[in-house]
Design a protein around this nucleic acid. Structure first.
Lengths: 266, 266
DNA sequence: CGCCGGTGGGTGACATGCTACCCACGGTGG
DNA sequence: CCACCGTGGGTAGCATGTCACCCACCGGCG
């Protein structure tokens, strides 16, 4: 697309360092944006898909040849991921996927609680008629997605609804921060987490929230947002505990403990 | 230092694009770390020093030759700054310093309020004896710096105290986020903002906060933190308004308005 | 058998060449 | 005089070469 080489098919084998990496989804999907962004997307997908795992060392060279691009955009994308805390570099040795601990998840949701509960309050107060319509529309879209059983679409609608409420609350800084936090927790596989319970339960959790905002009831909106986040947080903390081989019978107890410690006061 | 060239003294003139840029502080200071980090530091300094201004277009090539390094580390450093929202890239045209609007400042402090008020509450509850000692020590260090009239040291101690409280509250995610937010507002020149009032006023603002935490009075700590952030926010919003050539007689009114709108509900 | 210093492979960091692309400018035609 | 278009300078993005550095491995020495 840009310069002559490319599509030359990489050298048949490659790295001994971290084992062959399952060839990554060949980028493809994200065409259009810069290669660095495509690399970030591809790595994220590879992580959530379990194709790259914590504890193993990978290198820029390795990824570059696996994706048929040069080291520059790979390096650039990886550095951004590193800054976001998703990978960690070991000088002259490679980089490693950072494991998201249950405590991290709890802390992230504590922060989201601190930001989004007031945002819900403000949204209930500040939303104009047009914005209320958009909120209602987004909410209906989520129920629609849930009705067809489409997990991923439901999760996307969930995200969009949260973003919309933050926007209506009128704090673009908070919108950006929450966006960033979400990309971190996304690694746990929200989809996987919601699989256990029917998707329309996820959709229904928003009913009280949306109705409170539409009714302009600030306190009810704040409370609904708090409960929704707490419930999501506990699901994901449990997920993270399971990913750490926590014995199933202790998960419930530990989840309550971890989330309680992190959330108290927010 | 690394490869042969360097220190060859750049071509005598250089860019027409953004006018000659006052030669930047020649990096120097930050020796030791990577060149990309040195570039970030240098650019930050150049912005706060007014050597680079919003609205003008600069280029990687230009900065690279001005600093006698290649384009790679410059590009890398600038990309990081761009991700932090401090500069904006215009494809194939160059990059531009992003102006921080009064509204942005207000929103940032609204977010900080949402995060740090609960953190103060938690710190008052959770701090162990050793941590209380560290808080007290940091507080005294700030008063010491203020007594000698050292603006920059006082500001640093202020930062350290806030970071310490967030750490004691036990949420490392919040620590990172606040850190990032601070680097953005730093561009307004906290130093300049505090110059107008004696530094020990800044130090004294923390007295109620620290004493509440030491006394383990959660609500008093939360309230003190809220008031301190509101007062700092208003100072910086006013600063941002002045930077936008707002007529002096309207600053007070607009400050109250902007901050009130952004902070209500947090 | 255990320690220890040499050595080679692999990595991040930087320098540099190349290309597609965009915009401003100026000349040309109406 | 004004609209339009070709062209050239300048830029970001990507590819690739190079180097200092670090670590793991290994063979010899105590």
């Amino acid at each position: 697309m840009t310069t002559p080489p490319r599509s030359v098919a990489r050298s048949p084998d490659d790295g001994r360092p971290g084992a062959a990496l399952p060839a990554l989804p060949s980028v493809a999907a994200t065409t259009g944006s810069s290669l660095a962004v495509q690399v970030m997307t591809a790595v994220r997908r590879a992580i959530t898909a379990g194709e790259m795992e914590p504890g193993r060392l990978y290198s820029v060279q390795q990824l570059a040849s696996a994706m048929d691009v040069s080291r520059s955009p790979v390096r650039e994308g990886l550095l951004r991921l590193g800054e976001a805390g998703l990978i960690r570099f070991h000088r002259n040795r490679g980089f490693e996927i950072v494991e998201v601990s249950p405590t991290d998840v709890a802390e992230i949701f504590a922060v989201r609680t601190a930001l989004e509960v007031p945002a819900a309050r403000r949204a209930a107060r500040l939303a104009g008629p047009g914005e209320l319509d958009r909120i209602r529309a987004q909410w209906q879209a989520m129920h629609e997605a849930a009705r067809t059983g489409d997990l991923e679409a439901t999760a996307r609608a969930d995200e969009a609804l949260h973003r919309l409420l933050l926007l209506v609350a009128g704090n673009s800084q908070a919108v950006q921060l929450v966006e960033r936090l979400r990309t971190t927790t996304a690694f746990l596989g929200v989809v996987a987490a919601t699989t256990r319970r029917p998707v329309d339960e996820l959709a229904r959790e928003h009913d009280a929230l949306v109705q409170a905002v539409l009714a302009r009831d600030e306190e009810a909106a704040a409370l609904a947002m708090r409960e929704h986040l707490a419930s999501t947080a506990q699901r994901l903390v449990a997920q993270a505990l399971l990913a750490q081989r926590t014995p199933a019978e202790r998960v419930e107890e530990l989840t309550a403990q971890v989330w309680g410690a992190a959330a108290a006061g927010y």
